[in-house]
Design a protein around this nucleic acid. Sequence first.
DNA 1: TCTGGGGTCCTAGGACCC
DNA 2: TCTGGGGTCCTAGGACCC
Length: 426
Amino acid sequence: MSSTQYTKKIALIDCNSFYVSCERLFNPKIRRKPVVVLSNNDGCIISRSNEAKALGIKMGEPYFKEKEIIVKNNVQVFSSNYSLYGDISRRVMRTLKRFNSDIEIYSIDEAFLDLSNFSDNEIEDVGHEIRSIVLKWTGIPTSIGIAKTKTLSKIANHIAKKKKSGVVSLVGIENIDPILEKVEINDIWGVGKQLTKFYNKNGIYNAKQLKNKSNTWIKKSSNVLSSRTAMELRGIPCIDLEVTSSKRKSCVVSRSFGKRVENFQELREAVAGYSLNASEKIRSESLVTKSITVFVRTSPFQNQYGFYSNSKTVDFPIATNNSIEIVKSALNALETIFKNGYRYQKAGVMLSHLSESTNNKNLFSSERDEKINSLMKSIDNTNYRYGRSTLSLASAGIHKRWNMRREYSSKIDTADFYSLPMIKAI
DNA sequence: TCTGGGGTCCTAGGACCC
DNA sequence: TCTGGGGTCCTAGGACCC
């Protein structure tokens, strides 16, 4: 029965403890030691090495809550360095593309790859080859799950994470029920906290049970997404591989402050700065925005000072990516929601209803618009060449006492990155 | 005095993902 | 004292129309 078969095969390649692995590339001394990477502002733990996991350090936990274990066990701590992780990520993705250009880059450390063009018999070997080449060329260890649908490949990947070989294929297995039975409902891709609660209430605790539940019941009592998940568990592809990178629909820039902000002027500076970053981002992708939302809030964890959270959305008459116009609207919006007497913990802006910038002159464009466009271009070029915020607007402030904490940065700069020697595992 | 029914479009908020 | 940031999609419900 082992004639050559070419059934549908999707692989999910997931980098192990990605941020930790990136830091390890440049610091071999921490290879077998417990390591964690912190979120912005050194707030939460967002990446842990296996050694750190073994110590019981939890994902997403506030840093200060784990500090005791960390100090006691001499865990290595790093502030996050996203430009570095982004660069390594691009190298990993480039490597994966060699196996098939039909790839969906799902997140900074994950990609779905269509491997249907390999036969069922050889697929597991292909998985091992991908894994060893990525390791050799980028230094990043991965786990690989292969199955008929994206949801099943996620499950295979989940199992692969715990295996030394790092590769698990469900392709060609007649009955996967015994495997699905061991997968808890909340470990299924697309099933979060609320759905877990709901399914448990209805006696569903594992993937096999969900797979066998009727579609009409699921759709009626939940929604179409849930029924798609169930279909995918049955091996019927419902969630397409998104090969073409579609233009995004919104762009958010927000930060928690390094220390609480009470002063309106400082809040203005922060919001102006975030607006500038967001404008620059959409310009670099040739997008324009139709509206901006500004939001501010105090800490949801410290109620003794009173909780306040508010947002304001302003529409632009004509879609724009002009920094000056965007900052102006943002500050106007901020004025309407700012309230005196609160200790603000976070603020942000969101540009929505993004669309492609046509660059065409329209009825309302003027010579002044042309000048502004070329001004934006030269600001972007200068900032690209000499580092972000070389050129800024006065409203974005200079002192920035509220800036993020980043105490444990490895200080590896992407500008340095290309001057470093190539990494090759032996 | 009786006060329909069905359709579209938009938005806010929720749930999920990494 | 200290609790991240950036996305997508779906649904319910309101506004509006005929």
